[in-house]
């Protein structure tokens, strides 16, 4: 029995020791000296240098940060045009052979409630963000805060025969790369009714 207790006791105590919160760091400073008033001429204490190190850790370039900084979209201005008034969150999304700029939503809305829009710049106030970049695709999956309004008219999407909303851009702020791509397809319902004339074969012109 005594043998069993001597074996089980260390086994029961070991996890409680290993899961215990870490002990506070020891400092080389003499506890008695902490009560003395701080001389302003003294060099910064060891705690300040620790903060510096943590800040260095934050500022240290990681692969992700290097990738973000070298993205062409990093060249878009942080802020451009008239950035006052109502704003929307926008994410650049490119769909092959489909007219439009991407998705926009209000701050409190989810991306599921976002609208697919074609983007129209305001002459002499705010061009489209990608015009600051080498290629229009360079800000793909980049987020912006857009300032402007939805136009009273729509845009025609010729591939899908669709009408899409138009956002008139007055200003924007860059928000950086989006966390993830929006994979929701843009609207694809035909604008006009079923083509009852399509059944009629066109009359070929004889040369």
């Amino acid at each position: 029995m005594g043998l069993l207790i001597s074996i089980l006791t260390p086994l029961l105590l070991l996890p409680s020791v290993s899961l215990a919160p870490p002990l506070s760091l020891r400092t080389d400073v003499d506890p008695s000296s902490t009560s003395s008033p701080i001389d302003p001429s003294e060099k910064p204490s060891s705690t300040t240098s620790l903060e510096d190190e943590s800040e260095l850790e934050v500022r240290r370039p990681t692969a992700e940060k290097v990738k973000r900084a070298t993205l062409p979209a990093a060249h878009t201005p942080a802020k451009h045009g008239d950035t006052s008034g109502e704003s929307w969150i926008a994410q650049r999304t490119m769909v092959e052979d489909y007219c439009g700029w991407g998705w926009v939503k209000k701050d409190k809305e989810s991306w599921r409630q976002a609208r697919w829009v074609a983007l129209e710049g305001t002459p002499r106030t705010c061009p489209l963000p990608h015009t600051f970049l080498p290629r229009p695709v360079d800000d793909k999956n980049y987020q912006y805060r857009f300032f402007g309004t939805l136009a009273p008219y729509r845009a025609y999407e010729p591939q899908a025969d669709m009408w899409v909303d138009v956002f008139i851009l007055k200003g924007f702020m860059s928000l950086g790369p989006a966390k993830e791509e929006i994979r929701r397809p843009p609207p694809a319902q035909a604008s006009s009714g079923v083509n009852r004339y399509a059944d009629r074969a066109p009359n070929l012109l004889r040369p």
Partner: peptide, 27 residues
């Protein structure tokens, strides 16, 4: 144009499309 629309303004104010008042649709 496409099969349903004359687009006077294609890819000019809107990338890859045309504004509604600037097209003549079959409708």
């Amino acid at each position: 144009s496409n099969k349903k629309c004359w687009m006077f303004d294609y890819s000019n104010r809107i990338d890859g499309g045309a504004l509604e008042p600037l097209v003549l649709h079959v409708d």
